[in-house]
Design a protein around this nucleic acid. Structure first.
Lengths: 199, 199
DNA sequence: TAACCCCGGTGACGTTTGTCAGAAGCGATG
DNA sequence: CATCGCTTCTGACAAACGTCACCGGGGTTA
């Protein structure tokens, strides 16, 4: 089983490579520190499986998975991430990934899941899979955009300028988002949406 | 060289252990998923060096280092963390740690740093060390407490109740913090302070 | 064509936020 | 004792925020 590793933190990248190198049936062809580099390495090394983090500079793991799906590359994707966010899993599944593991899972789980995927199966964190079914993102595009900026401390006026909207409209969107998420203000709305992986 | 590993993410913990196991002069005695567990293992295993993450459930790596310092345990501490926050490094140094590495650093750096520390030296991320000298936390205790809650979406009134203050006083503290940090509102203040490791 | 929804905008209202100047209480320092 | 510094409080003001009801211009859809 020939694998490629995409992970931005060099130390974690090296450590995972060391971990996989212990398995006799797994060969680590190489590794990449971001999505773009991984994309190039995919062409060159033709691995069976790509193991990818999500949050990486430039191209994220989710975007990389989407690109692989569009180009119909013959490589399975296994996401390995810190984030137990149902929105992330949902997007990953839409992008056709074969696995979604949390870094909280025991180390042995990784090699095990790779074997499952290599046999044609799927390896999805079970708890998260459940949550992803029940909870879906209630926000529309505008609300998402506006909430993202509001969460960075931008005022309604500033956001309005960026999108060529009136500041009243921006406040309406924020009010909508706050209502949909059942919270009390923009900060809580931002935090909740972020935690769910909806931003 | 006998080391103990404290890191909450099981997969990363296992991977780091695999990485260190490759080094002939390093022996991984065990590992712990949080600060309290690490503290117990320290007593039992008497390692030369403790490798610890910072953000762990319950007792953090920084608190663990402080406790080790207070009890004058004969173990060197090396922090390995995601966070390039000068405030974290500062607190770590105050707690007498021998090393502070970022997970962004190459994997080889870890073993290398452990050897340096074992010889009695220090291994501190150089860029961060510089920043820690120049930038120091301008916030006082009240400002920190208040800002932390404000950043979670609490209103001035709610915060006031929690600390038995008037809501005007809370707003004054927030205004102070915003001014000291040179930003425009509580959200930006929270984000900046958090990024610097001052919360 | 009429009915409907979606997007964006308006205006008004009360609340919260951020700023500022000032002042009372209090322990420490001289 | 006087003075300083620190914490907390007050009141006032403008700005930003959150909510609501409502309006107008497209696009579907019936």
């Amino acid at each position: 089983m020939r694998v490629l590793l995409a992970e931005d933190q060099a130390m974690v990248r090296g450590a995972l490579a060391a971990l996989l190198a212990l398995e006799p049936d797994i060969e680590v062809l190489g590794s990449a520190p971001d999505g773009e580099a991984a994309w190039r390495e995919l062409e060159r090394l033709k691995p069976d499986i790509l193991i990818s983090d999500i949050e990486m500079p430039g191209l994220t793991g989710l975007e990389l998975a989407q690109r692989i799906q569009r180009h119909e590359l013959p490589v399975k994707v296994v996401i390995v991430t810190t984030f137990a966010r149902s929105g992330y899993l949902r997007r990953a599944l839409d992008a056709g990934v074969s696995g979604y593991l949390l870094k909280d899972a025991p180390a042995e789980k990784l090699a095990e899941s790779l074997r499952t995927v290599h046999r044609g199966g799927r390896a999805i964190d079970p708890e998260l899979a459940l949550e992803a079914w029940t909870e879906s993102d209630p926000l529309n595009d505008r609300e998402r955009q506006v909430l993202r900026l509001a969460g960075e401390g931008k005022s309604a006026g500033e956001i309005a300028q960026m999108f060529n909207l009136s500041h009243g409209t921006v406040r309406n969107y924020l009010s909508e988002a706050i209502g949909k998420l059942g919270v009390g203000n923009r900060i809580e709305a931002y935090r909740l949406a972020r935690q769910k992986g909806w931003l």
